[in-house]
Structure formats: C-alpha cells, structure tokens
C-alpha cells in the first residue's frame, strides 16, 4: 500500500471492553471492511493498521485489539503503553457490558496516558430491538467522563468509520496543540525505517517516540 510509505503520524489506539462486545469486528470492519459472523474470542494481542488522510496529513492508525481482559495480566500495561486513543466498547443489548465501562475506564487511566482520547462506543446498534442501554444514558455517562460517544454497528458498518475518524481527529487535535506537544501525550511510531522518511512536518519529530 502506498500510504504506508509515508505518513506523518502513527497513532496507537486500543480497543477495550468486555468480551463479546464486538471489538475485533469493529477493528476488522475499520481496517479490512470485513465482518465475521462467527468470530471467536480473541486470544492474545494483535493490531491492524489503516492509513488515512486527515487535514492533509497522513495518519497511520495502529489499532490494537485483545481479549476483554478480566484480570490483570503482564500484558496489560504493555497493551496500553503508548496508546493515544482508546475505544471503550460495550454492547447496547447487554447492560452488563455497559456497566463495566467504568471499570475499564479506570484500568485505562491506570495504565495509559492521562491525555488519551477515549471514545465510548455502543456497538451492535443493529440490535435495536434488544437494546438494553439507552443512548441518552450512555451519552450522559460519556459527557460526564469527558469521553467521545458514538453508537456503531460493525455488522451493518454503521458509524464505524466515523467513530475511528473522530478519535483520530481528536488525537490529532491534541497532538497538534502546543500544550499537548509539551505534555506527555505523543504520537507513536513504530521503530521502522519509514518512520522518519516522510518527516516533513516539524511537529512530527517532537512527538514521535521510538519504541
């Protein structure tokens, strides 16, 4: 793909949320435009990337996906490290997955950068008839906690693109702003040779960090 040759930023975004809410399908919908009806529980950790243009900048979204972790694992901190964005996913048809959002949020803030951009994502909006979490409730919760909010359907491909885009845009905003630049948040690039190749943007350097 041509775009992976040149990009201004690499943003690490993590997917979190209870098991079975559709994190992996959100990811595959966004990165591959695929949906797997009988996907299994995610084991281990993996990420996918998608490069996109935002405001004339090439941004590589590196989206990490793992199983809904139920206990602290050694991987937890590694998983969050360097993430500049997070999608906290719940299933709108399962109240419990929504109720655990708070717990996830706490874990996120325990391990990730405090300036991380977080979006609360109510997935499976196609299951309107089974809805157990009202949009307003979720929205209120998101506002209260300073989260972005969106309802999506990985199945119907509703709002998936928009959700990720919004997160990336928000991250970019933060990265671009001076305060953030000097703050702890940073865009992440992988330690590959290409990282610097297209570093025409001055802002890229200060916020790039080699892992």
């Amino acid at each position: 793909m041509g775009s992976d040759e040149a990009y201004n930023f690499v943003f690490k975004v993590v997917l979190i949320g209870e098991s079975g809410v559709g994190k992996s399908n959100l990811l595959s919908r966004f990165t591959k435009n695929e949906f797997n009806h009988d996907s299994r529980t995610t084991i281990g950790v993996e990420f996918s990337t998608r490069t996109m243009e935002l405001n004339g900048l090439t941004i590589k979204a590196q989206i990490w996906d793992t199983a809904g972790l139920e206990r602290y694992r050694a991987i937890t901190s590694a998983y969050y490290r360097g993430a500049v964005g997070a999608l906290l996913v719940y299933d709108i048809s399962k109240q419990l997955t929504y109720e655990s959002a708070e717990r996830w949020l706490k874990e996120l803030y325990d391990h990730a950068d405090p300036h991380i951009v977080v979006m609360l994502v109510g997935n499976k909006s196609d299951l309107e008839s089974l809805r157990a979490v009202s949009t307003t409730d979720a929205k209120d919760f998101a506002e209260k906690n300073g989260l972005l909010f969106m309802e999506t359907s990985a199945l119907e491909s509703t709002n998936v693109e928009i959700a990720f885009n919004n997160v990336l845009i928000e991250i970019h905003k933060k990265v671009s702003s001076k305060e953030v630049t000097h703050g702890s948040i940073s865009a992440v690039s992988l330690s590959n040779t290409r990282a610097g190749t297209d570093d025409t943007q001055g802002e890229t350097k200060p916020c790039c960090r080699n892992l």
Partner: peptide
C-alpha cells in the same frame, strides 16, 4: 507478548492486514 510488543510489535500485526 510483552517482550514482542516492546521489541518488535510489528510481529503482532494482524494476519492479512
């Protein structure tokens, strides 16, 4: 995994992606 993430995260790039 932690070591992979820290040393060479690209290994974890999802297959087919």
């Amino acid at each position: 995994l932690v070591r992979v993430i820290e040393e060479k995260p690209s290994i974890l790039l999802a297959l087919n992606s």
